[in-house]
């Protein structure tokens, strides 16, 4: 096995173009499990963890440009105010040891429908920046997930960063699992309310071949929330919103839960997320 540990992004892109089958490794929390259990034997490993520009984030005014290698721990310590939804999701990942190493670039690379970053990225309308020797591409998060564990990247490309709009209203993330720590989501839901544009974004995890959005639920919420006076979300709205989210999911029966259980829990957690996120939207306003 060849092992490359470039110190700059340019070197990494040159290596990736010369070795398109090279497997990228950053935090290693997905890749090493595959190697330890002999599920993968790549000829080449391309270690991205020494590239400092991938492990930085910067403030772009309306958005945060999050390097692909910034760990979950850093996300919730450093960006909880700007990206509350992603920060909440990051707190639910694995254990401290996993959160110290894993990050959004690896989550997007694996593109598992259960990945905890995806609902938050979908809900806030993120853009994935990828690069190759031929240049860069900005992929709308809505076009990024193309199938089960498949993303829209070409073999010579590397994820460099994700551009995520700063919260313009309340955000929430909720995840169903058998315990608090070290749980792969049975299903999950993220919401981002945008009080500037009077719109609502959603993301559904672990209830379909890819992470999904609930478009009808989004329009329902946008047209029923009381943007003028901020009056509370009613139980009827929670119920209707939840039903629309459940209808947008495409779950299957598997070891972690049945499709029916997933639909039911999604309806419940999404209704609650709407209520909580609306409450924090009002709190943000009154500040």
């Amino acid at each position: 096995m060849e092992f490359f540990r470039p110190a700059t992004l340019n070197d990494a892109l040159t290596l990736k173009s010369a070795h398109p089958t090279a497997l990228c490794i950053n935090g290693g929390t997905d890749v090493m499990v595959e190697l330890n259990f002999d599920r993968k034997r790549p000829e080449t490993l391309l270690d991205l963890s020494a590239i400092s520009e991938l492990s930085e984030w910067s403030d772009q005014g309306d958005s945060i440009l999050l390097g692909a290698g910034v760990s979950y721990t850093r996300i919730y310590h450093e960006l909880a105010k700007e990206l509350p939804g992603l920060a909440m999701a990051s707190r639910t990942v694995g254990s401290l040891q996993i959160r110290n190493k894993g990050g959004v670039g690896g989550n997007l690379g694996s593109a598992s429908p259960a990945g905890d970053a995806h609902p938050a990225l979908l809900a806030s309308g993120a853009t994935v920046n990828v690069a190759s020797v031929n240049g860069t591409r900005a992929i709308d998060i809505n076009d990024f997930y193309v199938g089960p564990k498949k993303n829209a990247m070409n073999p010579d490309e590397i994820i460099t960063s994700v551009l995520i709009p700063k919260a313009r209203g309340g955000q929430q993330y909720s995840k169903i699992g058998t315990r608090n720590a070290m749980v792969i989501a049975v299903c999950s839901f993220g919401i981002a309310i945008d009080s500037t544009n009077k719109s609502v974004g959603t993301g559904i995890g672990s209830a379909g071949p890819t992470p999904l959005r609930a478009h009808e639920a989004e329009s329902y919420a946008a047209s029923h929330l009381d943007w003028t006076h901020g009056s509370a979300v009613t139980p009827e709205m929670m119920k209707e919103f939840g039903a629309l989210v459940a209808a947008a999911s495409k779950p299957i029966d598997d070891v972690r839960g049945t499709a029916a259980y997933r639909r039911h829990t999604l309806a419940v957690i999404s209704g609650r997320c709407l209520k909580w996120a609306w409450t924090s939207t009002q709190e943000m306003r009154s500040k």
Partner: peptide, 15 residues
């Protein structure tokens, strides 16, 4: 300085 699982770090990464 960061707490990690040593089983999830590739040898080449700790040079």
């Amino acid at each position: 300085g960061i707490l990690v699982c040593a089983c999830l770090v590739a040898a080449g990464q700790v040079e």
